[in-house]
Amino acid sequence: MSSPVPPQHARPKRAMAVVWASAAFVAVSAAVIIVHLAGAPSGAVEPSSYAASNAAPGAPQTVAVGPSSSPAAKPSATSPSAAVTKTAAAPPQEPPKAGWIPVDQAAWQAQVAAFKARKIDPVPAGVGNLPEFRADCQYSHRLADDPIVFPDMPGASHMHSFVGNKAVDAHTKAGDLTKFTATTCKPVVDHSAYWVPTLYDAASGKPVETTGFRVYYRSVRNNSTGIMPIPTGLRMIAGDAKKKVPTPRGAQGQFYCAFYGPGDLDGIARSTNGNWPICGGDATLHFMLQFPDCWDGKHLDSPNHKDHVAYGSDKGCPADHPVRIPALTFDIQYGVKGTTQGYYLSSDTTGRSASSMHGDAFLMWDSDAMNKRTKDCIAQRRTCDNNGYLH
């Protein structure tokens, strides 16, 4: 990944390293995710003890403005978006009424048939046995838009930081992701868009953007029974933007400090309000967000953007969400160490806790690439990186 210095983690020797500085963090984080899901799956992944790892509301903000929905306005793969001064509109009281978006069953069945017919690629010697593949992404742009929650309503959302597909704004539809494919992610066959609420420095009011954003697609269970590829166009949200409770040391859903070697995930100190860690050594702020791994097989979205997916267990998926799919995990790095003043998210500018952290995923891979990775990496439980087997 070509982003600035990423976090370093330790990884079991069986899964040879490449996670920004070391890929070992994956094995432990997978176990952490399973433990978390055994409790109340709110989306935030709680790191356990292991070694490794808006400006003020209404004020003018300098934002990287994404394109409109017209082709002429879409950015090229090489031209950065223009920076302009813009005042973010206040969010409406309620999001627009959205409904269930059905999957194109013919297209889905064709993808399933192709997946079942695909043969597993030969496995090179030395490949690890962590069932996962991934996309490494860089920051793309910042907009007060949300094409999932507030479609066709530019400026209606709190500020979001986008990675992946560069052409995303409030008007983005599934077809746009396949038509305008310039991306900040590797591999480039991942045309998806991923976004989270923007993080701000509480002292300066300036945004703090991600310096590393890895999206894992993995099995978080002890088996891969019945695993199927993710359907093109699936969208979902993890976490709760309306949750505004304190996140003191040890709380669920807090940011943590990632480091290499012994240290304190909760930081060597806390911000004055106690909600944010201050990291020691080479550690920087991180957040992990876990998405569901079961799908109803019928809908690409639901009114609350969550009801069409669910969290499964080692025994399988719920009867009303019978399709097991790779589980997304956002592993997000911010290149800051923490301050006494702390930070705040655009989704909670007053309480200034981390509990409203959430993530959106609008998924659009090349279907053959998705099928290949799901079969090679998840179905047969082998470790893959951005391009295939990791060895």
Rank of each mutant, 00 (worst) to 15 (best):
S3R: 01
P4N: 06
P7C: 04
P7S: 04
V18T: 05
V19Y: 10
A23E: 11
A24F: 12
F25L: 12
H36R: 00
H36F: 01
L37F: 02
G39I: 05
S42L: 04
S42E: 03
N54M: 14
A56L: 07
A59T: 10
T62D: 11
V65L: 04
S68E: 08
S70R: 07
P75A: 08
P75W: 07
A77Q: 06
S81V: 15
A82V: 14
A88K: 10
Q93S: 13
I101N: 01
Q105E: 09
A113K: 13
A113Q: 13
F115C: 02
F115D: 04
I120Y: 09
I120Q: 11
D121I: 05
A125N: 13
G126L: 12
N129I: 03
L130A: 14
R134A: 05
Y139K: 03
D146Y: 13
P147M: 05
P147Y: 06
V149P: 06
F150M: 12
D152G: 03
M153P: 09
P154I: 13
G155P: 06
F162G: 05
V163L: 00
N165P: 08
K166F: 06
A167I: 13
A167F: 12
V168E: 04
D169L: 05
A170M: 12
H171Q: 15
G175N: 12
G175D: 15
K179N: 14
T184S: 03
T184N: 01
P187I: 01
V189R: 01
D190F: 12
H191C: 11
W195Y: 15
T198L: 04
L199T: 12
A203V: 07
G205P: 07
T210A: 01
T210N: 01
T210D: 00
Y216Q: 15
Y217A: 10
S219M: 08
N222K: 14
N222A: 13
S224H: 12
T225I: 10
T225F: 07
I227T: 14
I230P: 05
T232A: 08
L234I: 14
A238C: 12
K243R: 02
G253T: 06
Y256A: 11
F259V: 15
G267F: 06
I268F: 09
I268P: 04
W276T: 02
P277C: 15
G281V: 14
L285F: 01
Q290V: 10
P292A: 03
G297D: 02
S302A: 09
S302R: 02
D307R: 07
V309R: 01
V309Q: 02
A310N: 13
A310H: 11
C317E: 14
A319F: 08
H321G: 10
P322G: 09
P326L: 12
D331H: 09
G335P: 01
T339L: 00
Y344C: 06
S347Y: 08
T349A: 02
R352W: 09
M364T: 15
D366F: 14
D366W: 14
K372A: 15
C377W: 04
T383G: 12
N386E: 04
N387I: 11
N387E: 09
H391T: 09
